[in-house]
Amino acid sequence: MSKRIFSKRMVIMLIILAVVFGLIFGFKAFMGKMMNDFFDNMPQPAAAVSTYEARQDNWASILEAVGTVNAVNGVNVTAQVPGEVEAIEFESGDSVKKGDVLIRLEAAADRAQLNALEATAGLARQEYDRYQRLFKQGSISRSELDNRRAQRDQAVAQAQAQREQLNYKTVRAPFDGVLGIRQVDLGQFLQAGTPVVSLNQLQPIFVDFALPEQELSRIEKGLKVRVTLDAYTDQQFEGEISAIEPGVSEATRNVSVQARFENEDNKLRPGMFASVDIQLPQSEDVVVIPRTAISYAPYGNAVFVVKDAPQKGETGENEESDADSEKKAEGADKIVKKRFVKLGRRRGDLVAVIDGLKPGEVVATSGLLKLRNDAAVTIENDVQPSADATPTPGNS
């Protein structure tokens, strides 16, 4: 009997505990739902933004490419014959003219050999002159005279060859240009072909780049080209197309193009990376906005278009309920709508919008990180982000 009563009491206690814990967890779930509903329905404070009205502009058509700066002439000056460096006649970074002496190799033995060969050549000339007189007197045959002529010519040629060999002992600049860093030392023994110093002609200079074959019909020699260098980001350099490769690469389907620049200040150096803009004679109408108005994202670029907040009883662009729209617009008379756009070329602080925006529509240009679709905003245009097509540094 007592055992049955004990079991009954245990069942009652378990039921009571289950009810108590159920009430506790139920209360917590209820409170959580109420808090979530409160935060979900809590009016969002209006974000302060600056705005810009999208406008239509006429931009010159431009093709963009990336290129590399190359010298008209650029070589590593080398020694043509072996020898020990006797004198160095230049400093690293010097500007030189064609024919200027760069280094001299030790050449005492070569000069002595040249003297010996010139003496032999002189004797051969005298012998030939004597034999020529004898031939006129009938004392010798024509074959003997011809043999002496051959000996004379051979001796002269050997002396000339030695003279050229001696000239190779003096290394000269092959063209006008700017020297690099010296790569040899005084007293160093050089083998033939050993680099002495780099030499590059910097005026004029070329920029080589490639364009897709689809653009071949739009370019021609003489078109103006502008390049920007990473070393001089605030400066553009102007040149013109000087050559177009007649064939198209089968591997890339690109055509190689070369532009010529005067480079009077020697700022363009071989090997530099260059951003290239080719100015075409045609122009196009574009819708432009500041680059600060673009929200960049991997899944697509977007802008926040400023709209009038829906009044009570109206519905927003996304067919939201009246209560939802009024809640999001509370405290402000403007809201923003996120809209994905397709971007085109950039010019200074401006960017062209190819698709997704019309002239006259107003976009937010600051505070984008605080915005989301249908967020309430207030407009403060006291401080405007830069929106200049040709910006210049403030210290210029």
Rank of each mutant, 00 (worst) to 15 (best):
E91V: 11
Y52C: 02
I62F: 08
P82W: 01
A47Y: 01
Q56I: 08
A46H: 00
Q137H: 00
T51M: 11
L105I: 11
A87F: 05
A150H: 02
D57E: 09
G122A: 14
T120V: 14
A121W: 08
R152P: 02
G138K: 04
I140E: 03
N70F: 05
E86S: 15
V77Y: 08
R152M: 14
L102H: 01
F90M: 12
K98A: 15
D146N: 11
G138A: 05
V66K: 12
E86R: 11
Q151K: 07
V66D: 10
A46V: 02
F90L: 13
Q137Y: 07
L145M: 10
E89D: 11
N76D: 07
R125Y: 13
A48K: 00
L117K: 14
V75G: 04
E89I: 01
T68E: 05
A119P: 12
D129C: 04
V69Q: 02
N58A: 10
R133F: 09
G138P: 03
G93C: 12
A79E: 08
Q137S: 10
N115C: 13
V101A: 12
I62T: 12
A109L: 14
M42E: 03
E127D: 09
E84H: 06
E144A: 14
L105E: 12
L117Q: 14
K98H: 07
G99W: 00
G93E: 10
L145N: 06
A46G: 04
A54M: 06
T68R: 06
R104C: 09
A47P: 01
L114R: 11
A124H: 05
V66W: 06
R148Q: 10
G93W: 06
W59R: 07
N70C: 09
R142S: 11
